[in-house]
Every structure is written in C-alpha cells, then in structure tokens.
Design a protein around this nucleic acid. Structure first.
Length: 581
RNA sequence: GCACCCAUAGCUCAGCUGGAUAGAGCGCUGCCCUCCGAAGGCAGAGGCCGCAGGUUCGAAUCCUGCUGGGUGCGCCA
C-alpha cells in the first residue's frame, strides 16, 4: 500500500473529472503532477503541485484550478481538509483512519510492505566488486561490494529481475605477476633466498600458496624456465585467489549469481565478434591518437592503433582496442564482456566501479550504446574512497608494500552489520570516513546503533507485554482495533511508516540505497520520540495496564515500526537485533 | 590542457530528479529518570547552500562561465 500513489491517483481522477466537466481543457498532460509530503508539516500531510503545473498549458489561474480541485478532493472520505496556499499549492490533511490503515497494512504485509512492481520484471545485471584475483579484498573493495549488493537487493525489492555478477580479470598481465609472485614463494618454500622486486606482489597471503605448490611439486620446477610453469601456476593461483575472495564476500553476506571469467572471452571468438559488431557500424578504424594535451609523457611518440570511434557515442576521444603490437587492450575484452550482457538478454546494466575508473565511464557507455543500438541503458556508479581512522589517527594502505587493510580485518573488528550500514550512510560518490572506534560506539552518534536500538526497544515492549499476560502474537496484533491511535505523536510515527513505500520507490529510481539508511534513521528518531513522551504522558506508553485492547493497538503501531526497520535493514543486508548487548 | 565527481551550520553529512520559512547528528547553552531500557528525549543559539550570470510563477536543485578540492587521461588492468 503506497499511500502517496493512492492519493496521487485520487488527484488525477479528480483532474479527469474536471476535464470532463469542462473546467480544464482537453489533452492536458498530468505526468508532472506530484503528490508529496510538504517540507513543513504545518502545511498539512500532503501537497500537490497540480494547479501550478497545469496553469500554463491550461491558460488558467493556478489558484482557480486549485480551488476547483480542492472541492473535488474534499468529497473523499480520506481527506479532511484541502486548502489552497501560496502560489497554488493544494495542501491536504488526511483523516486519522488513513494512518491507522497504513499501520495495519504494514503489519499485515510484514517486510513486503514497500515492495512494488516498479521494475516490472526488467532484467537488470549489476556488476560489482570485480576485484582482480591477485589478493584478498581490501577496504576499498568493501564499499563497492556493500553498495552493489544493497542496490541489487533494493531493485529486487522493487520488482526487478536482478543478477549479481562478478567479472574476473583473469587474463591480463596482472595474473602473470601473480603467478611469478607465487613462484617466488614456492622457491622460498624450497629453501631458496628470493627478492620481491617491483612488479611482484610481496604480500604474506601468498606464502601458503607457495608452500602448497611445494607440497605438490616438490623441487621439480625450481630450476625450470618460466615458460614451463607460468600457465599452470597462473591457473593454480587465480583459482586460489578466487576461493579466497569468495570467502571474503561470504563474510559480509554477499553471494554472487554469476562469476564471469575474462579468460573465457579469449580464443572463443567473442572478442573478435564484439569488435566485428562495431566494425559493421563503421566504428572501428586504424588511426593515430593525438598526444594528451598539456604535459607530454617523456616517451610519447605517435603510433598507429586499432581504434573504436567512441566519440560517435558521447566520448571525448576515440579509444584503442588494440595496442600497437596488435594485441588487445584491456578495453577490448571489456567490450566483449558487456556485449555478452546484452546478448544474455539483460534490459538494463549497472556497473559499480571504484572512483579510479572514472576515466572509463564514457567509453564503456559508448560501447554499450553502440552494441545495443541505444536499447540497453547502462548506469555506472563510482564508489569513492574509504578513509580509515583509528582513534582519529588516519592509517594508509599500500598494496605494493603488502600492508593494505583487508576487508577481513575490518569485518573481524567491527562485524558485517556495522560495516555494511556505515558504508551505506553516505552517497556512494562521496568519500567516507570510517573510524573503527566510532562505528562500534553505542550512542546516537552512531546511526547503526540508533536504528538497531529502536528495533530492540520494540522487542523489549513485546517481551514486557508477554510478561504482563497480554496477547501480542502476530494474528492478534493484525486484528487489533487501531481507531484509538489518534494522538499526534502516534500519528506522526504512522506517517513516517506511510512514507516507506514511496521512499523505496525513489531510492530504486535513483539507484541510491543510502536513502534507505537515512530513512531508517528518521523512522527510529520518530519512534524514540514517542517512546520518551511516554515518560511524561503515561497514556502514550505502549503497555496500558488493565487495558489489553488499548495496549494491543499501541503495540501494533510499535510492531509496524519494527517491521519497516526490519525490511529496510534487510535491503541493506543488516540483521536487525531484538536485544542490545 | 581535457574529461568526470565534489563544494550546504564550527565539524561530518541529508535535502525526496524545480516547490513554501534549507534539515539531521556531533560540538555549544539549558531542561527531562520513583516512570515499558536516559545506550534515550525536549528546547535554544548557529546559514550570501563556493562566486557571478541565466532559464522559471518558483533554483541548494536545471544551463553557462569562473574559483577551490578529488580522480583519471595511447602501448596497466
């Protein structure tokens, strides 16, 4: 039940009626008519801009339209007041019964309250994490992982058919580096002195791999040339790394639907196929790119390459798909990979990249646009850096030195729930400060705690009610008579609950799961406020001694809050707690 | 040099794809526990929404140009 959609439907109906009656001219477009909560609560429960939007095309005074609309709306039972304000706003006040109905709907639908068919089964592919299989996930990956996963859940909740996908970069030079690094560890396990020079991964996490290899191989390839072991060790090492990465992901509750290997694009004609598809459109040519303006790289010299005319699809310069030696650039298999997404029948693509891939966005969009004839939209979300702090002291990570902070480190210290929530309390394109001390603090300074606390308080009430012999099982609460919930403080909580479906819709349309986190904070705030008013005004307490029926209605409201919090946390991938410890 | 992202209270950030007097938390000043958990709540002070133009009935939001910060810029992935 989306109250805002219901009221908007009522407004549109009224406008249609007014058109039929000749008050409004025929053929007006109502698409821009919005029904939203006014910023200032004193203006009422809902406001519509209908009169202002229609004034110009209807060639009429906005206030006059608003007056006419007001008369129609006031006839509906749900609306107690519909008054014209300002330049032509129509402010509506809704009857208490409306809020009681919303509360009942939330209880009846449980965590499905807020689900919609907005997506209409649209097949959407969300690619996220996609970290190189050269080591464990670090904090930077964590943000993209959490963001992508929450977005996937959000879209699924809104009726999209979601596929969570991870692209394994297991074919580039970086996996050769991995193989050589593992080989060094293997030599080490065989008692050799080795040096980790630039261009190798010195991290400790490869030591067990070297040992495992030594256990299998003994010293048989200690003196062998690279050509004899490279391929085998590469395979061995990337498999091991992907195993590690899956474990890391599992720690934070992420399970991918598809792991897509870059390697499988080679030797199967898929890269060639994708490039041919572009070629047929005349978008592939031999050419020489102009040098980057400004500071010229020392070793720059003009070279002829195979280029993709991405400028035809909104890019700034054309991009090479082949290096000057004729081998594919990284971009080529990426084009082929996205081509497979189109061919696999996805209607919509979302890529979640780290901010350092910002320069990649336009060419990827250009490729998808060209390959799908503009039919498949692609949204690319860049996640900004996570700055780590410990007691206010920042600490850095350096992959080269092998001293980066892993996702595992973070999860082990603060837990998956806190990590996920904190990383979602910021827009993904803004940098995030993550302070180990602060995120585990139990105070309202910490939004995770604050929201969890509200949920726990509801369950505390439920426990107390049971102790007091009040029946608060789900069926009883759903059947409770809520007509007594008329106090302003209670209505305010119900109003917040009513916003949930609308909020979900907005978050889905914008691909912005952080809105869920902020909403939950606001809902928790309303609930804490009501709770505390019970201190002074005892009639607002949830448990009314000797009056089970009243208690049940108030507890029903509290339970509705818990249901929505639970649904919201579910989208974020956070487990609601029933008790604080 | 070019492209993308960002700029909102002392600090950290929201702001519902253009709405009315721009909101939270922290910090600061007060107040509220005999009371379902005060791990909370209430109130107050605090703003040229980076600057300058433009579009509009109406702009923090859209457009243009600046300023300042981040990221990236052929033969890495």
């Amino acid at each position: 039940m989306n109250l805002f959609a219901d009221i908007r439907a009522l407004v549109i109906d009224s406008l249609v009626t007014l058109t039929a009656e000749g008050v409004l001219p025929e053929g007006l477009d109502f698409a821009n008519v919005a029904v939203e909560p006014p910023r200032d609560a004193s203006h009422g429960d809902m406001a519509t801009n209908a009169a202002m939007v229609l004034a110009k095309p209807a060639k009429a005074n906005p206030r006059a339209i608003a007056e006419a609309l007001s008369a129609k709306l006031a006839a509906d039972d749900r609306i107690t007041v519909a008054e014209v304000a300002g330049p032509g706003f129509l402010n509506m006040r809704l009857a208490p019964v409306v809020w009681q109905q919303v509360t009942a709907a939330a209880l009846a639908q449980g965590t499905d309250f807020g689900k919609s068919d907005l997506g209409q089964g649209t097949k959407v592919n969300i690619e996220y994490v996609s970290a190189n299989p050269t080591g464990p996930l670090h904090v930077g990956h964590t943000r993209g992982a959490v963001f992508g996963d929450a977005l996937a859940s959000l879209l699924a909740y809104s009726g999209y058919d979601v596929t969570r996908e991870y692209y394994i970069n297991d074919a580039g030079a970086q996996v050769d580096v991995l193989a050589r690094s593992v080989y060094l560890r293997y030599l080490e396990a065989n008692g050799k002195e080795v040096a980790f020079e630039d261009g190798t991964y010195p991290g400790d996490y490869l030591i067990p791999l070297g040992q495992a290899l030594a256990d299998i191989k003994g010293d048989s390839i200690v003196d062998a040339p690279e050509s004899e072991w490279l391929e085998e060790i590469r395979e061995f090492a990337t498999d091991a790394m992907m195993h590690l990465i899956r474990q890391d992901l599992a720690m934070i509750g992420i399970e991918m639907d598809v792991f897509y290997s870059e390697k499988t694009l080679y030797g199967t004609g898929q890269i060639e196929g994708a490039i041919t598809a572009l070629e047929k459109q005349g978008l592939i040519y031999q050419g020489t790119l102009p040098p980057p303006k400004g500071k010229l790289p020392e070793d720059w010299e003009p070279r002829e390459q195979t280029l993709f005319k991405s400028t035809d699809h909104g890019d700034d310069v054309d991009r090479p798909v082949k290096k000057s030696d004729g081998s594919w650039t990284y971009f080529a298999p990426d084009i082929a990979y996205h081509y497979t997404k189109i061919e696999r029948g996805f209607d919509m693509l979302i890529d979640v990249f780290g901010a350092d891939h910002g320069g990649y966005v336009k060419r990827m969009k250009a490729a998808v646009s060209a390959l799908s004839a503009g039919e498949v939209p692609i949204d690319i979300k860049l996640t900004q850096l996570v700055k780590l702090f410990k007691n206010g002291e920042p600490f850095k990570m350096s992959k080269r030195a092998g001293t980066f902070v892993t996702m595992r480190d973070v999860i082990e210290q603060v837990g998956p729930d806190v990590t996920r929530f904190v990383m979602l309390t910021r827009k993904q394109d803004a940098p995030l400060d993550f302070d180990f001390a602060k995120v585990t603090e139990q105070s309202k300074d910490n939004p995770v705690f604050y929201v969890q606390y509200a949920h726990a308080r509801v369950h505390s009430v439920l426990r107390k009610a049971v102790e007091a012999g009040i029946n608060v099982d789900a069926v009883t609460l759903q059947a409770a008579d809520l007509s007594g919930l008329t106090h302003e403080a209670e209505i305010d909580v119900a109003k917040k609950i009513a916003e949930w479906p609308r909020l979900v819709e907005i978050a889905s349309r914008t691909n912005e799961p952080h809105r869920i986190a902020f909403y939950l904070y606001e809902l928790a705030s309303e609930f804490h406020g009501l709770w505390n008013r019970g201190n002074e005004e005892t009639q607002l307490r949830f448990i009314q001694e000797g009056d089970d029926a009243t208690s049940q209605s108030k507890i029903a409201l509290a339970s509705a809050v818990a249901v929505v919090i639970s649904a919201g946390l579910g989208i974020l991938g956070v487990n609601p707690v029933e008790e604080m410890r």
